[in-house]
């Protein structure tokens, strides 16, 4: 498929489908994008498994950190890769050996590996590259507009408020 442009419906379905997300390259440094995204996805109610070999056994955002995909104790719906494009392929290979296989492989902003993506798609795994799930969630939920972002979403329906009202939700409930 074309990975230059994604239809909002494709992204929406992914973000509504997945419940467990492994974040490859999660950081405990609160100024790093990988920390921002980990925290955001935890706050939105996803079950997040931060991966970082140097921090295995410690916690990020209250979630236990694992050294590798194979150590995660639950089926992983989505693997979110915060590593550069060159090494992204090796994480895709690891993800494809998981049992059950993940539904989605997501590569962050600036991360793109077309060969690895094609391999994952051949195995029936959906792929998103060079995007951020925090930004895409924000666009679909309306939060993106709060910072002047062009969400590309038009609707005459009232948006839903989530929980205390601090978040607008795609309907994923915090567990």
């Amino acid at each position: 498929m074309n990975h230059d442009v994604y239809e909002p419906a494709y992204i929406r379905q992914i973000l509504e489908d997945v419940r467990t997300i492994a974040i490859v390259g999660a950081s405990s440094n609160e100024a790093r994008p990988s920390f921002f995204v980990t925290k955001y996805l935890v706050d939105k109610g996803y079950t997040v498994f931060p991966l970082n070999p140097g921090m295995a056994g410690k916690e990020i955002c209250g979630r236990k950190v694992y050294a590798s995909l194979g150590e995660v104790p639950e089926p992983i719906d989505m693997v979110d890769i915060f590593r550069n494009s060159e090494v992204a392929a090796s994480f895709v290979d690891q993800a494809l050996t998981l049992e059950p296989s993940p539904k989605v492989i997501w590569m962050q902003l600036t991360v793109r590996h077309d060969e690895a993506a094609a391999k994952a798609e051949a195995a029936g795994v959906r792929v998103v590259m060079n995007r951020c799930p925090k930004i895409e969630y924000g666009k679909l939920s309306g939060e993106w507009g709060w910072v002047g972002g062009n969400s590309g979403v038009i609707s005459s329906k009232k948006q839903s408020l989530h929980g205390s009202g601090k978040m607008q939700s795609l309907g994923i409930v915090k567990q």
Binding site: G142, G145, N150, S151, V153, I154, S155, S156, K157, K158, Q159, S160, L161, G165, Q168
Partner: peptide
């Protein structure tokens, strides 16, 4: 894809969530 005039009226302006 919405046209220019549709965007001029609707872009960013969903019903108030509250």
């Amino acid at each position: 894809k919405p046209g220019f005039d549709t965007l001029a009226i609707h872009a960013g302006a969903k019903p108030d969530p509250a």
